[in-house]
């Protein structure tokens, strides 16, 4: 009975999402803003997990949603809107991370002094996690982010990174091992 209710709620959620997408495609900005509100946190997690910079992640998020808005008419509904959006987020963030791979390491003092990180919204996290993530490939970071931060299933991860659920499982296993290696190696 409980599972029925959960299924029902899930179905309602999907229907609701589908309706919002329909309205957004028809040019309803309010509907798109609702989708933005609903998925911003997850998209931000993906961008932050891959880019590792809050500022860059925030900029990337704006670009990702803008891309989604502009290309909404290309959304073919073979997958859920969220999966389609996460795929844009992963691709865009990986692209962005490749553009400036050494940027984080080459910050001059002036720039560093001016760009005091805004930590008002960010809770304190284990700095070693970020360091360990930095050592990984962007795609590995993407997989870990999607699994541990966005709580996506292997199927959804596969769709988001463009592979099968089995391939996603293998990628997750490897990424986790690499992360552990780096993370535990860095621990005092």
């Amino acid at each position: 009975m409980v599972s029925n209710l959960i299924d029902q709620a899930h179905t309602l959620g999907v229907d609701d999402e589908s309706r919002l997408v329909d309205r957004a495609v028809a040019g309803d900005e309010t509907a798109f803003r609702s989708l933005y509100q609903r998925y911003y946190a997850k998209v931000y997690s993906i961008a932050k997990g891959i880019l590792l910079s809050a500022e860059e992640a925030e900029d990337a998020c704006q670009e990702i949603f803008m891309l989604a808005y502009k290309n909404l008419h290309k959304f073919d509904r073979r997958s859920r809107f969220s999966t389609w959006l996460f795929r844009i987020a992963v691709n865009r963030s990986i692209q962005e991370s490749r553009k400036s791979p050494g940027r984080r390491g080459i910050v001059d003092l002036g720039e560093e002094a001016e760009s005091i990180p805004d930590t008002r919204h960010e809770p304190e996290t284990d700095p070693m996690v970020e360091e360990a993530l930095e050592q990984l490939q962007p795609l590995d970071r993407a997989v870990l982010t999607l699994f541990y931060w966005d709580d996506l299933s292997l199927q959804e991860i596969g769709e988001s990174i463009g592979c099968s659920a089995n391939a996603a499982k293998t990628r997750l296993f490897r990424a986790r091992e690499r992360f552990r290696e780096v993370y535990e190696g860095a621990r005092p």
Binding site: Y44, K48, L133, W149, F179
Partner: peptide, 17 residues
């Protein structure tokens, strides 16, 4: 390790789009 990784999840207010 899992707890650390999950704990590093960013929590950001949703800015205006």
């Amino acid at each position: 390790l899992v707890r650390s990784l999950r704990g590093a999840r960013p929590n950001r207010d949703v800015p205006v789009f």
